[in-house]
């Protein structure tokens, strides 16, 4: 059970993982549209402003594509195995399945459309439901990061400090780039 929750890639990878992952990503984006939950960064979840459906889908696609490209390049550099792009892309797509939960939790939170500018405004919106949403979202984000790490190490056959350091570096680059690209597009 623990393996299925944190490393399903032992059993599923390649095209199968890619199709299942894409399906979950689409579901998360559609639910996100209705609950106004944005995935505006590789590991970001924010709630509040209304946007057209394509915004949610594009954000999710960017969140998956950037780590897939970066970790594939990292795999080619650091791994001694003959890795396949479809395994990296597929396992990283499947790793995002847990984002369905924050999208669903978003229904229980009401945020003002404009971001708070002062501390008083922040304190006003800091309701128990917002705090619970924040904590649960953090939990699901950590789960997703653990899945992404296992996706990367399984698909690229990396272990030890080489795997940890290259993953942290890759994730940071992907996060910064995703924020920049999403910021430029929307």
């Amino acid at each position: 059970m623990k393996k299925w929750l944190f490393n399903p890639f032992i059993y599923i990878a390649g095209a199968k993982a890619l199709i299942i992952g894409w399906a979950f990503m689409l579901v998360a984006a559609v639910i996100g549209y209705f609950s106004m939950t944005h995935f505006d960064g590789v590991i970001d979840v924010h709630i509040g402003h209304i946007s057209p459906m394509w915004t949610y889908i594009t954000e999710t696609a960017i969140d998956w594509a950037l780590p897939a490209i970066i970790f594939y390049i990292a795999g080619l550099i650091f791994s001694n195995s003959s890795i396949r792009a479809v395994d990296v892309a597929g396992t990283l797509a499947l790793a995002r399945w847990v984002m369905v939960f924050p999208a669903l939790i978003g229904f229980g939170v009401h945020m003002p459309p404009a971001a708070p500018a002062t501390i008083d405004e922040v304190m006003k919106i800091l309701t128990p439901s917002v705090i619970v949403f924040g904590l649960l979202t953090m939990l699901f984000s950590i789960w997703m990061i653990a899945l992404m790490y296992n996706a990367y190490t399984t698909s690229c056959n990396l272990k030890g400090s080489k795997a940890i350091l290259s993953f942290i570096g890759g994730l940071l680059v992907a996060e910064v780039l995703s924020k920049l690209i999403i910021g430029l597009i929307f």
Binding site: Y11, A13, S155
Partner: peptide, 13 residues
Amino acid sequence: LGLSYPTVRNLLD
């Protein structure tokens, strides 16, 4: 073995 392709490749490697 009921395992994914990269898992089997990793075992072989």
